[in-house]
Nucleic acid binder design. Structure first.
Lengths: 197, 197
DNA sequence: GTATGTGAAACCGTTCACAGCA
DNA sequence: TGCTGTGAACGGTTTCACATAC
């Protein structure tokens, strides 16, 4: 791994590459060039090579990349070899969908070893996180309670939070928070449609 | 509006400002400075002023911004004054959650006038889009069928697609697609947690 | 010959700093 | 005085172009 700072956006693209490499692998393709993968992913070939360059050299000049191998290397880079334990708060609404249809998760995460997802009444959270070694808290509850749940997750010792509410959470800076906010994406869509009449 | 190209990321932040302005308004605050809003949103004050500057002059020097007024102006910029009609494909899984718990949507969209959301068997899509004037298609179906549904939406004359599947959709360039991909956000989280041991 | 890996250049977005105005 | 609006400086990301290796 290089000592330069790796842009977060490059890491995000890595997940895109991993997904499409898995698809190529399923189709029996063994080798792919940066140009080929770039076309599928909708990015510039040089960008793929640059992104990969942050972490090492995975290709063969004059040939390309071995699909299986590159997919594995990216999974390793992203830390997806490990089994992550998640706790979900919010059994109603979005939460129940995430839980009840675990196959949805599995389908998109064939290459990820996601651990048990546990539903917990908020009060029992602290014990649960400590006993079960939960590392990631998922907040899929109404926006009104989002900050409170986040605080409890923090107090319980979770290291990261996946936030499905549109609330901007206030958390300690050493805690990692990722937001999935479809209302924002919908707003963006409306803006772009409005621009083009 | 300025004639320079407006970065998509600036527009995305506008939605963040709008949301927090609505909250400030609910709390009875009438005026806010770029510094005050920036603190709440977790961004740089100059960035807010710059973002707004793409669209006009909304503040008063030495004072700040009128909360209600700015919130309204941003809604207008984003095209959220209009009522948007959406069609949802995917009643199972994520889709049912989006539909059955409309109050979830309402809660986060108090300032948005989102139109009827219609569930349709895929075959009837074309007629539905044309008869009801649907402008945005929402794809919350299994990844396996995502591209097919997208193609049908395109054929039916939808102008934009909100894609909840992790599939990179292939669509005509004049169609607007926004992706909500929580698997990617989860991957990012895992990477960052792995970095810090 | 072909495709990677990577410095250099071009481009874009963010932040600074201050002029302009209430 | 205080805060907006904005040109300029800065920093970071993308793309180019070519040396390098198979």
């Amino acid at each position: 791994m290089k000592s330069v700072n790796i842009p977060a956006i490059a890491v995000q693209r890595l997940t895109l590459y991993a997904r499409n490499l898995a698809l190529l692998d399923q189709k029996g393709m063994e080798v792919v060039s940066s140009a080929g993968l770039a076309d599928i992913c909708g990015v510039n070939p040089a960008q793929i090579r640059k992104d990969l360059g942050y972490f090492g050299q995975f290709g063969i000049r004059g040939v390309g990349y071995y699909v299986k191998e590159l997919a594995y290397e990216i999974r390793k880079i992203l830390g997806l070899e490990k089994e992550w334990r998640l706790a979900l708060v919010g059994v109603g609404n979005l939460g129940s969908a995430l839980l009840r249809h675990a196959q949805f998760l599995d389908q998109s995460y064939t290459f990820v070893q996601v651990g048990q997802i546990t539903v917990a009444p908020v009060k029992a959270l602290k014990r649960l996180v400590k006993d079960k070694g939960v590392e990631i808290g998922v907040i899929a509850i109404g926006p009104r309670w989002a900050q409170q749940v986040a605080d409890e997750f923090v107090g319980a010792g979770v290291r990261g939070i996946l936030n499905f509410t549109p609330v901007q959470l206030r958390c300690p800076s050493d805690l990692h928070v990722e937001n999935v906010d479809f209302t924002r994406m919908l707003d963006m869509l409306c803006y772009r449609l409005t621009l083009n009449q």
